[in-house]
């Protein structure tokens, strides 16, 4: 397996919600400038794994975590780690587009302002760069002061991506980012992902196996809280080494 250039290394991660163990001994690398996909049936723990990468699970009461989650060589769960810096460096896109009920511009400048950028010209540049990065600039450049709620679903999701780009993250986590979108909007987001990995690292949770096959470089298959298999996407989809993976991929599951 490839050892060099991992942004994130997950080692023996165990996670409990109360008494219910949601992740069991998960170990997985995330390679820089690659798309890593997580697939598996509902409730298998793939979203939980994704949300533990930027510590969004902290928000859930009685959630307990053991194991290592190394981000550029530092443990994300170390007591000295600043969770705010972690989340700045590891952005997240959610299942349903969730722009703030503000103008398009304010949506983008929210993050930079929080992190201390006050210069107006700098903010303008960030707005333009982020929107271009999310392939939305041409569509909205004339109505930056309109409410973000006036955008279509696909545009809203790209706005959310732009919002994440505005604080220049290294990794972007995507939790089923296209499940609420129509096929055309979905294909735009997929194209965008392929662009994004040139500069960033993407981890995506998806229900859509074709999507995983189309866009990802590495794929992990999860079942009942365990990472059953992790390998090159091609190999997972053509010659999986585990019987369970094969059955899931070919739709002969359960």
């Amino acid at each position: 397996m490839i050892i060099v250039n991992n942004v994130i290394d997950i080692e023996k991660l165990n996670l409990w919600y109360g008494d219910n163990q949601a992740l069991i001994d998960v170990s997985m690398p995330v390679e820089r400038n690659k798309v890593t996909a997580l697939i598996g049936p509902s409730g298998c723990g793939k979203s939980t794994l994704l949300r533990s990468i930027n510590r969004m699970n902290d928000l859930i009461d009685n959630c307990k975590i053991e194991g290592n989650m190394m981000f550029n060589g530092e443990d994300i769960y170390d007591s000295k780690t600043d969770v705010i810096k972690v989340r700045k460096k590891i952005g997240m896109i959610f299942q349903k587009p969730n722009p703030f009920p503000m103008s398009i511009r304010d949506n983008i400048t929210y993050g930079p302002k929080i992190h201390g950028v006050t210069d107006r010209n700098e903010l303008e540049k960030i707005v333009e760069d982020s929107l271009k990065g999310a392939a939305l600039w041409e569509e909205v450049k004339d109505r930056l002061d309109k409410s973000a709620m006036t955008l279509s679903g696909g545009q809203q999701q790209r706005l959310c991506i732009a919002r994440t780009l505005s604080v220049s993250p290294e990794v972007i986590l995507m939790d089923e980012p296209t499940s609420a979108l129509d096929p055309i909007a979905t294909s735009k987001i997929e194209d965008l992902m392929i662009e994004l990995v040139k500069k960033y690292t993407v981890v995506i949770v998806t229900h859509n196996m074709q999507q995983a096959a189309r866009i990802s470089d590495r794929t992990g298959f999860m079942y009942l809280g365990e990472l059953v298999e992790f390998d090159d996407t091609e190999k997972i989809f053509e010659k999986p080494s585990m019987e369970l993976t094969d059955r899931y991929i070919s739709g002969r599951f359960g």
Partner: peptide, 27 residues
Amino acid sequence: VPKSYREASLAIGATKWETTVKVVTPA
């Protein structure tokens, strides 16, 4: 106020308080 607003703000690295002041209360 939808939970997704809070998540979006926290995921970008805002503190809880910043989220409260700038996102939740205005909403």
